[in-house]
Nucleic acid binder design. Structure first.
Lengths: 230, 230
DNA sequence: CAGTATCCTCGAGGATACTG
DNA sequence: CAGTATCCTCGAGGATACTG
């Protein structure tokens, strides 16, 4: 609270926002994570102790509110928190222009990618009933993860959920991250043989329509176009 | 660098910005401080060691550039740094709406206020030649500071510069900070007898025109009007 | 003026085990 | 499921003294 001890709005704002992890916690609520474990899956490298503490601080500052929803707890942005969304998207858009590059090896995490993807499923493009997609990342930090979509609910799994797999997405981990983020379009990675699909051709054709674009895809595309002009 | 290890623009932005003090260092460059000691006077509670280290980090990240200007060094925002200005003003404007209140005792620092004021002098409203204004803060954290304006240059001093004082601004420290920030208008503090001027009536009448408003004064006024409507 | 080198402290936060 | 309690480590950063 008294860290800066300056009577200045920027200092007051930094007091609220410039703690490690805080922007990512707010991001998770902005993209639809409201339960403790869901928020944690979106930020796997924060410890549960620290996440708990940061959430308490955000509640005390009036940016987040905690509420009992029946049996479980939920965290939601308050009006003050929602008023921060533009600033936080602004931080991300700035980074797209100046500090966001091709994925580095330590940033690769296919489980995290699939977890984030599960929030962007276009259910009206999905087959009726359950669809199970297995992602197999090869190359650096290889791994597997599963996306299960059923009617209008989807989830990401780091363990085999045991359902029959309808479609396998297999590819280089860097390429999967480039596609996920919007840094490169699906078609390019497929035609470069970096990513391939295995499954019924009906599903293979439909797959590119199953996910809404990354929230930063528009800014990334604009930035790439500006780069090419320069 | 690898703190978050997430392939996300918000994480990349937080990596650059969410360090303690960093937003305040950028603020100082945004308002016109470019030399090490000037930046430090704007952020007196940071140690010189840490300021030096943060500046180096900002240079490495491409947000600030350091250049020799003749004998001395200067720090300036790069294009990437200038592109951050809207985000940083956004943080301050958000704080005005949700996290900026009347000054607390630990935030009072009349020397810092006068130092910041020296950048906002309207030289065309100032008398020709040198003008020395002494600020005397009474009440909590009392202190004195001097503002010296000469032609088109001004500075703030924490020690008596030894010049004849042309005008004395005397008042409660909280009131001086409210006026400085734009939280309350000059006329209100004067008519409430919280602040008074001592000096030739010509200078007393002119004083309220001598400084450009605080950069957040507009947002503060808008916010106060919205508060009254609610 | 504009820093840097060195030493030392303390508190943020990780690991682990636990709870309603 | 959603955390909390406890213990411990290590590194950020303050204090001090120094330099071109």
């Amino acid at each position: 609270m008294a860290t800066y001890a300056e009577y200045c709005p920027i200092a007051a704002g930094a007091e609220c926002l410039a703690d490690r992890w805080t922007l990512l916690i707010l991001r998770e609520m902005m993209v639809g994570a409201h339960r403790f474990n869901d928020i944690h899956r979106g930020i796997p490298r924060i410890s549960r102790t620290l996440l708990s503490q940061r959430l308490r601080t955000l509640v005390n500052r009036g940016i987040v509110e905690r509420a009992s929803m029946g049996a479980h707890q939920e965290y939601h942005l308050t009006a003050a928190g929602r008023d921060l969304e533009d600033v936080i998207w602004g931080v991300g858009n700035w980074a797209v222009r100046w500090a966001f590059f091709d994925p580095e090896e330590h940033e690769l995490d296919i489980v995290w990618v699939v977890w984030q993807l599960h929030r962007r499923v276009n259910f009206d493009q999905m087959p009726a009933g359950r669809t199970t997609v297995e992602f197999r990342a090869t190359g650096a930090r290889p791994g597997r993860a599963w996306l299960v979509s059923d009617r209008n609910a989807a989830t990401g799994c780091e363990m085999d959920p045991g359902y029959e797999v309808d479609l396998v997405v297999c590819g280089d981990n860097h390429a999967l991250h480039r596609w996920y983020s919007g840094v490169s379009p699906w078609r390019r990675e497929v035609s470069d043989n970096q990513i391939s699909l295995q499954g019924p051709s009906r599903l293979v054709r439909a797959f590119p329509t199953w996910f809404a674009p990354n929230p930063f895809a528009g800014e990334i595309t604009r930035h790439q176009a500006a780069q090419r002009r320069a």
